[in-house]
Design a protein around this nucleic acid. Structure first.
Length: 687
RNA sequence: GCUGCUGUAGCUCAGUGGUAGAGCACUUCCUUGGUAAGGAAGAGGUCACGGGUUCAAGUCCCGUCAGCAGCUCCA
């Protein structure tokens, strides 16, 4: 006896075990045909799933309209793709093929290098398979049977996976579709015919089991939808995201430049991009001063001794630019006939003398703290700096503004007592919140990075770590935002609270960060004199609300799709003259705005006004000031808003007041909605 | 760092072994206009760089550098 409860509360009873397919059929032939997958007691299953006898079960049936069915179908599409590739390239070894956000991928090991040119052929083969509409058939097997099946198929990765990965499973399952059999948990749609529209998107290398010591496989990314409209919409979205990409917009709007000759991952800020960076810096500077921070400046390089003491040089040499060796030390090595390999060894041992491009600002700030005796009455001491650091990121990882080799942190180091730690952490988090709010960026996530207790890469006392991890948790709860805790994500010197956002392509980037450090004060033997007249060890906090100015601005460009709010816009207004007759008046207006502190330019070209407006609009300039005979007579300007269009005429003073108000309040308006095609209409990203 | 793809004018791109192209941008001239593209002419290229194959290379091969996608890494 099986009692099935449907979502509307109605029940059906069966004498024996029953499948969702049977229940669908009993409800109606239409549903039986439309059903793609089901959910039994919260678990997504195929329509052939056997609901065992003697049970009560809550059953939901999913049709093409349900997102749950889409995921199941995409996984089926992955099987079809694998089947097609196997048919075209015999001998291919299958690895993993899961569904991911927006589609699926499947990892293959085959000698033929797949490329975009193969996609059409593969898609054509998939078309045949889908047209044949063969069912997906589930096959259950115990471990021994399963191993026999995969060995018979010659699928070595599957053999390894059953042996080493699925050790907990006594019973395994396969799905068969025609001649294609794959080890698979399922579920699948009933038959391939329901895969309506699909497309192979890209191919890239991926290591077996994500380990760079393992063989590299070919990962084919694809997506599938039940109908063509869904696929088209998805592809349009990908297209829009590309146009929103900060690398594209950065070039179009002339915000920054990276030159092959000056170096990979080293940003050259143009005047326009520099405005954005400067305005963000000014904004946070005034906040920091109000919060009792003190600005400092430190050099771009420091002696190796500094980084030997801090631990950076011995621990993280591969991620640093090589050391700058002292001239006389170099001579001494030469005199000793030191070979390159000797030098390399000496370097690895940290036994050389010289300087390092600074990978972090903290050691310098520590030395400022330590430059005089500190009393508990002085604490907390908060030192901030827009400090530029250099890190040797792997070449394949570098791109745009989000992953670079030289970047400027809005860095600060707080030195406080144990008792002050919790409050100081809260203050840091407030600042991060403020930064995100100031640009209307609300869809960030909070992650607490804890240590991986099994790893030995961390320095410091486990008890201190426990204390610090607790302090982070407590501070994070004051944010009033959900946060996740991730083991193994801590810095080597302490736990941290990271603020993570997605870019327009869905990639995650860490921006703001707040990190507790018990380690550096010990390494540098920092102290303060307590009320008991005894020396005590201060606790350090590293924090950077923006994280890196480069990365933050990269994400910000995408957030605004290049249409910056007035307070950040590189060019805030452009005077557009109706004809060149009014150039003199136009220049007067321009001068008045500039006098009022605005970033303004004038367009006096011998072009028609429509063309000048179009150009300004495409440059995403917030306001155009149209001046012609009418305006000149009345000493006015006509304001054209980037978003709302013609706002009519007003006095120059009135216009300035309007702009100043918008700037001073750092108004973030709903995005520009013109036809420049620069804006994604994704509702989640409206601002 | 690894795998694959790509590199032609300022930008976006066409050009599959036989005299380097288009659109936009730029310069000049004409046009002087009322809220998203007026017209004409001109200038602009060591086809990323270095080797090789060939009578002949932008085109084929190898290497380097850089970009893109993903993987790995990210104090």
């Amino acid at each position: 006896m099986v009692t099935i409860t449907l979502p509307d509360g109605s029940t059906k009873e069966y004498d024996n075990e029953v499948t969702p397919a049977q229940v669908a059929k009993d409800i109606g032939p239409g549903l039986a045909k439309a059903a793609m997958a089901a959910e039994v007691d919260g678990q997504i299953v195929g329509l052939d799933y056997l609901i065992p006898d003697g049970n009560e079960a809550a059953l939901k049936l999913f049709t093409k309209k349900d997102p749950e069915a889409l995921g199941v179908m995409r996984h089926s599409a992955a099987h079809v793709m694998a089947r097609a590739i196997m048919k075209l390239f015999p001998g291919v070894q299958l690895a993993f093929g899961p569904t991911i956000d927006g589609g699926v991928y499947y990892d293959f090991d085959l000698d033929h290098k797949l490329s975009d040119e193969d996609f059409e052929m593969i898609e054509a083969e998939m078309k045949k398979i889908i047209k044949a509409d063969e069912p997906f058939e589930r096959i259950e097997a115990n471990r021994e049977e399963a191993l026999n099946i995969v060995s018979d198929l010659g699928q070595e990765y599957k053999v390894e996976h059953i042996r080493d990965g699925l050790t907990e499973h006594s019973q395994l399952s396969f799905y068969r579709q025609g001649e294609f059999i794959d080890l698979c948990r399922g579920p699948h749609i009933p038959s391939a015919g329901a895969i309506g529209a699909y497309k192979l998107l890209s191919v890239a290398g991926a290591y077996w089991k994500g380990d760079s010591d393992n063989r590299q496989l070919q990962r084919v990314y694809a997506t599938a939808f039940f109908d063509k409209a869904g696929l088209d919409e998805h592809l349009t979205k990908i297209d829009e995201a590309k146009r929103r990409d900060h690398r594209t917009l950065g070039r179009q709007l002339g915000l920054y430049h990276i030159d092959e000759m000056s170096g990979q991952g080293l940003i050259l800020w143009t005047p326009k991009g520099s405005v954005i960076r400067k305005k963000l810096q000014e904004f946070i500077e005034t906040r920091l001063e109000r919060q009792g921070y003190h600005q400092v400046f430190t050099p771009h390089i420091g002696k190796l001794d500094l980084y030997k003491t801090s631990g950076h040089f011995p621990y993280y040499q591969e991620s640093q630019y090589p050391a700058l060796i002292n001239r006389d030390y170099m001579q001494k090595l030469a005199d000793e006939d030191c070979s390159f390999s000797d030098l390399s060894d000496a370097m690895a041992e940290g036994e050389i003398e010289g300087y390092l491009l600074k990978p972090m600002n903290c050691p310098h700030h520590v030395k400022i703290y330590d430059s005089q005796q500190r009393s508990y009455r002085d604490l907390p001491i908060r030192l901030f700096e827009f400090g530029t650091v250099y890190r040797w990121e792997q070449s394949g990882e570098i791109g745009g503004l989000t992953r670079v080799r030289g970047f400027t942190q809005d860095d600060a180091h707080l030195f406080c007592t144990e008792d002050q730690l919790a409050d100081e952490l809260k203050g840091c988090l407030e600042l991060v919140k403020l930064v995100f709010a100031s640009v209307g960026m609300e869809d960030y996530s909070v992650r607490i990075g804890l240590r991986d207790k099994d790893s030995d890469k961390y320095v410091g006392d486990p008890q201190d770590w426990d204390k610090a991890e607790d302090a982070c948790r407590q501070a994070a709860t004051t944010l009033g935002k959900p946060f996740i805790e991730e083991e193994g994500e801590a810095a080597f010197y302490g736990p941290k609270i990271d603020f993570v956002v997605n870019d327009c392509l869905g990639r995650k980037w860490q921006l703001g960060t707040v990190q507790v450090d018990y380690n550096l004060p010990i390494r540098f033997d920092l102290s303060y004199i307590g009320a008991d007249n005894q020396p005590h060890r201060p606790v350090m906090i590293h924090r950077a609300p923006f994280g890196s100015m480069e990365r933050f601005i990269g994400v910000l460009i995408e957030h605004f799709a290049g249409a910056f709010p007035l307070w950040l816009a590189p060019e805030q207004a452009r005077v557009v003259v109706v004809s060149q007759k009014f150039e003199e008046y136009g220049r007067q207006v321009e001068a008045q705005l500039r006098e009022a502190g605005m970033r303004v330019s004038g367009d006096y070209r011998a072009e028609k006004i429509g063309a000048k407006i179009r150009d300004a609009q495409l440059e995403l300039i917030p306001y155009m000031l149209i001046v012609g005979g009418r305006e000149m007579e009345n000493g006015e300007v006509s304001i054209r808003d980037r978003i709302d269009g013609d706002l009519g005429a007003m006095s120059v003073a009135g216009a300035i007041a309007k702009f100043e108000d918008e700037i001073n309040n750092r108004v973030v308006r709903k995005t520009f909605s013109g036809s420049a095609g620069l804006v994604s209409r994704d509702a989640q990203n409206e601002y």
